[in-house]
Design a protein around this nucleic acid. Structure first.
Length: 278
DNA sequence: GAAGGGCCTTTGAG
DNA sequence: ACTCAAAGGCCCT
């Protein structure tokens, strides 16, 4: 077990803001889940974060630090943004919310499942996906399951996924897994591309459209220029900046990019989580 | 090339 | 039991 300085990170806001779907409450201030193949328990202890799990302390510390982005200061990004009062309120209400560094493939697959869906159901779907196709990792006598890799899901049967409750997303997920597995879209290469090229490349994936691609760029590739516009972000942004005028999601995203610059992703997640907690 | 509409599966929550 | 809405994408005008 290890203690890390929280550096302002609030675990609840970070883990329960809809960027990840696999963490479960563990005790009064804790969450348990997996980072890669390691079972990890994170506990908020004031200005410290306690890290336990199925690996040596020397591994757990850096793993959690990187995952929670404790090595970065979000305030630095916000310094150059144009923040009106409504945005400041959202940032204040969700203070401590970090953008997690997720595995690109897990993030991609998760957000393909997220389309026209709700978070409770997404979590259930992903849990069944991992139990069915993931690898069992024993931790203190309990089995936990890793997120299945692209090669495994590329061999999965669409019908089987439908029976797991994936609905019309089942064929999307299998198709995307094949594209990734066959390197039609090389995620490692995408990580090195400039934003616009990375975006265009990811959009070739089945089941990835204008909204999901922004989520993957933000949560999976750490591109803070991304600004996912879902139904809720669309509503609040239209109310704030497009009074009595209809605005397409594209226009909203473009306004956000101009206004919030490199902190787009942070502002978006603050707005999104604000409507979830109120 | 941009924008709008119909259709698609399932289920958690009220 | 019934209804509603959900971190949308695809395909066609």
């Amino acid at each position: 077990m290890v203690y890390l300085p929280a550096s302002g990170c609030d675990l609840r806001a970070t883990l329960e803001s809809g960027q990840v779907f696999r963490w479960r409450r563990w005790g009064p201030r804790g969450w348990r889940g997996l980072i890669g193949t390691t079972v990890v328990t994170l506990t908020q202890a004031g200005s410290l974060i306690h890290v336990g799990g199925s690996a040596a302390p020397a591994v757990l510390g850096p793993l959690a630090c990187r995952y929670l982005r404790l090595d970065e200061d979000p305030e630095a990004l916000l310094a150059s943004a144009e923040l009106d009062p409504a945005i400041r309120v959202a940032l204040q209400a969700t203070r401590g919310l970090r953008i997690i560094r997720q595995d690109p493939w897990e993030c991609l697959a998760s957000f393909i499942c997220a389309s026209f869906n709700n978070i409770a159901r997404i979590a259930g779907m992903i849990e069944r996906l991992c139990r069915t196709y993931g690898r069992a990792v024993a931790h203190r006598g309990e089995p936990w399951f890793t997120f299945p890799d692209a090669a495994t899901l590329a061999r999965a049967d669409g019908g089987a996924l439908r029976r797991l409750g994936f609905g019309y997303r089942a064929p999307y997920l299998v198709a995307a897994a094949r594209q990734v597995n066959e390197r039609q879209v090389d995620l490692a290469a995408v990580a090195r591309l400039p934003y616009e090229e990375a975006r265009a490349t990811l959009l070739r994936l089945t089941g990835v459209g204008e909204k999901v691609v922004e989520c993957v760029l933000l949560f999976g590739f750490g591109r803070f220029e991304a600004f996912p516009v879902d139904v809720w972000i669309g509503r609040v942004m239209r109310r704030l900046y497009f009074a009595r005028r209809g605005a397409t999601d594209r226009r909203i995203r473009e306004l956000a990019r101009r206004r919030f610059g490199p902190s787009c992703g942070l502002v978006q997640q603050a707005l999104y989580h604000t409507r979830r907690i109120f």
